[in-house]
Design a protein around this nucleic acid. Sequence first.
RNA 1: GCCGCGAUAGCUCAGUGGUAGAGCGCAUCCUUGGUAAGGCUGAGGUCCAGGGUUCGAAUCCCUGUCGUGGCACCA
Length: 871
Amino acid sequence: MTGGATPVQSPPMARYNPKETEPRWRKAWADADAFRAEMVPGKPKYYVLEMFPYPSGRLHMGHVRNYALGDVIARFKRARGFSVLHPMGWDAFGLPAENAAMERGVDPKGWTYDNIARMRAELKELGLSIDWSREFATCDVAYYGQQQALFLDFFERGLVYRKEAVVNWDPVDMTVLANEQVIDGRGWRSGAVVEKRKLNQWFLRITDYADQLVDDLASLDRWPEKVRVMQENWIGRSKGLKFKFKFGGPAPAGFEDGLEVYTTRPDTLFGAAFVGVAPDHPLAEQAAAQSAEAAAFIAECKKGGASQAEIDTAEKMGFDTGLVVKHPFDPDRTLSVWIANFILMDYGTGAIFGCPAHDQRDLDFARKYNLPVTPVVLPPGEDPATFEVAGEAYTGPGSIYHSGFLDGLDIEPAKAAAIERIEAQGEGEGATVFRLRDWGVARQRAWGCPIPMVHCDKDGVVPLPKQALPVALPDDLEFGKPGNALERHPSWKQTTCPKCGGPARRETDTLDTFVDSSWYFARFTDTASPVPIDKATADYWLPVDQYVGGIEHAVLHLLYARFVTKALADDGQVSVREPFAGLFTQGMVTHETYRLQNGDWVEPKDVEVVAQGDIRAARLVATGEPVTVGDVEKMSKSKKNTVAPGEIFEVYGVDAARLFVLSDSPPERDAIWSAAGVQGAWRFVNKVWEEFDSQPASDPVAEADEPALALRRATHKLVKQLTDAIDSFRFNSGIARLYEFLNLLKANPAKGASPALLAARQEALSAFSRLIAPFTPHLAEECWTRVGGDGMVAFAPWPEYDPALTEDAVRILPVQVNGKRRGEISVAAGAEPADVEKIVLDDPEIARRLEGLTIRKVIVVKDRIVNIVAG
RNA sequence: GCCGCGAUAGCUCAGUGGUAGAGCGCAUCCUUGGUAAGGCUGAGGUCCAGGGUUCGAAUCCCUGUCGUGGCACCA
């Protein structure tokens, strides 16, 4: 100010201005290369990773929450002295790019990289402590070329194979669809009825690792129990018996040894009433070839819809093939062989024996076709002479009866005895069966990682040598029509056979994008390595210490990544057998929904909500039209209940947005975004700055007065609380403690404070600026500078606390009489129970309460409470 | 059907044997040169229900109710 008419008068306090401070600090971090991850021998390392985003082109609140959560951990661990790796990349292959190409005629590659550029800018605005030097996209040829090398390694080790399999085929889009992409039997995009087709497909042998994938879940003690349970269910390990029924009469071709079935209940074998095979079982196909009736029945079965409702209500249907098999324990008994619609070909052996008394499906089937229902498990307390199974199969505990040599045994011993007998007869053996199937990884899509194989008329399917890698995607793909643009490309697939040198065709299928995300975390450890994974570097950084992402990946991505890690470990490429030592699954970001009277959804930014007492009414800002406030739901475009992060950053700053999304709920639960909430966070940011701005420079004071000591105690308690809260992912409660502490600071203002209190405030503010750094990093830098902190808070060590100061010297103990609070006494911390008892009994107020009562017992819990039992 | 998770103030949640708490919201009053504000004070709770264990239960156990997530004709 150079003088003039306006009086020179600075406002009492300068408003905090995130628009100025936030970009300034982001630049300072970038200039200092503050977050570069470095291997420091002897320094403990910490690898924090959030699930990398698909580059849709737009950041949403879910991203903000996900990356803010990870950033809290990364910044905290860095301050705690760890060498932190916190990278970012892009899960960039996949259908949306091809759909955009088809619908808008854009190039998928250009579309994807444009989106990445936009999202990178938005992510950088979040002020994340990321080592951007390691950024890559899975559609970078440098990445997928290395992935092709891994695929060849897996092929060499026998983990890749090709087989004919039944797949979901969309006849309009002309591609295979994943099960998740088939909704009520129709393609999710085209709406066409999906066909079942047999196609040659590439598979990864994940089932080779099924046992390990279940067993090793037990070692993942920093994973949510829920996710471990879901994986266990998905893998679906069951132990039972596989054995062959001998045919009673001439065996059908190919079944000379018998018909193999699988059961988890060999103890109920004597209750068998029939044998059933799946409609697509080879035996059923044979029957169809010989009988028009059987063929018609099978066709009928295949018509059944795939939707859950249809499966739930589908009636049991069967067709008697006329074949019979002999009971393994009683050769005089025969069982008829049926084709049944409720038997699945891809589980077990595709054939079962039916025990109606103890399996609900078998019972329904037996009732429909008048097959015998013989109970063989007697529930405890039931009379064997009268026990019957009527409408409900009995699946509980009991002892075996009506069962020859198994009679009198409990279920488990009976299972063992039955298996032993079958094994002795050489007809089968105990077997473990999994629900998990091998992983079909081929996609008839052009925007993916090409499978490095060629087809030669002479040599068949031949892997490319590694020197031929990468197999790069061509840049001139035509996406005008559905189907695989790679297949249509005029020249790309023409090549020569690595074996015979003759003409050959490239494989035009590409890899499932889940392959891309199954090893990216390992690539982050050295993104420039000429081999897929640089072992020494990976050994330093892996495993990922803390992985953060959505629960929606609880099974597929996390299971695939675990499998690939185990396969890589067996190949000597990494040393860890589990990729993610800690997993945190965060909740979604939700928002209220708003509708006009005509039912149209409206966006939050067009709605004004007014509180009327405890009731909330809403109206449209533009017209005043009343708006109905609906349920809180996941932010989605269809319900228009989204809030654009960029608009929030613009109004309140990045720190307020981060703070609110972290403070609202425990991180694993859904967080409800609200305008009031973010305003609250914004007010907090301002109040914090006011406290720092009002603090004058002060000198350390030797003698602390009472208020100063109280503030010091609170400060040290706060440090302990925040440390514990972040360590245990209770970010919301940590932030609540910060709110409380700010109120305490305001109650002990700098204005009028004693020198001792000013010094205590100085200590408090120094700690506070470091404690808020993981949550509101820009504000923290500004505050740190204001209190004379050394360098940037991004490099500052986490504050330490003095345990002696976190404990109060004097304790107020409630005194209960018969469990009801009747008074309190104050004693020195750590006072011995005997002394406390004496003080209590000498207290006149307590004595008055005890008048006329006999003291039976006095319970003193040190530093907590006193209870007198009297009567 | 099977396997989980949850229920505490109007809202979002802490508290996991020992005095029922926080933030936001709400109300009163003050301030209106901190102004898309700020401050003081306050109200508000059968800790889902019932039973059990205990000197003592929101907390541990059992049963139920409601809500919610995952899997599911998996033999």
